[in-house]
Amino acid sequence: MSKEGDFMPVWASNLTWWTLLDFYLIYILVLFILKFVFHNKRILSMFSFYIAMIILFGVASHFGLKIAKLINEELPVILLIFIIVVGAPDFRLTLESLWKETLRQGNIIMGSERTKTEIIKAAQSLSKRQIGGLITIEKHNNLDQYASRAITLNSDVSSELLINIFEPNTPLHDGAVIVRGDKIVCAGAYFILSSNENFEKTTGSRHRAALGISEITDSLTVVVSEETGSISISINGVMTKMKDESTLNEYLTLFMK
Rank of each mutant, 00 (worst) to 15 (best):
I135V: 12
N142M: 02
L153I: 09
R208L: 15
V222M: 06
S127T: 06
T94G: 01
N164H: 06
V177Y: 02
I67Q: 07
I137R: 03
G188H: 03
L103S: 00
R208F: 07
I233C: 14
K100E: 09
W99T: 10
N107Y: 07
V185C: 02
I231K: 05
A60P: 02
S155F: 14
G229V: 06
N107W: 02
D244F: 13
G106Q: 09
E245P: 02
S225K: 05
K66P: 00
F199K: 05
K241R: 14
N141P: 00
F191G: 03
Y190L: 09
I235D: 12
L21V: 04
M53E: 08
E226L: 14
T228C: 11
L126R: 03
T152C: 10
S45D: 10
I84R: 06
M53Q: 12
I213H: 03
E197Q: 14
F63Y: 15
L93M: 11
R208E: 09
K201P: 05
T228Q: 07
N154M: 11
L161K: 05
S194L: 08
K257E: 13
S234C: 13
I216W: 08
S2C: 03
G58F: 05
T228F: 13
I67N: 08
N14M: 14
V30F: 12
A189K: 04
T202D: 07
S158I: 03
I51P: 02
T253N: 13
I83Q: 02
K257L: 15
I137W: 04
S13D: 05
T221F: 06
G58S: 04
G5I: 06
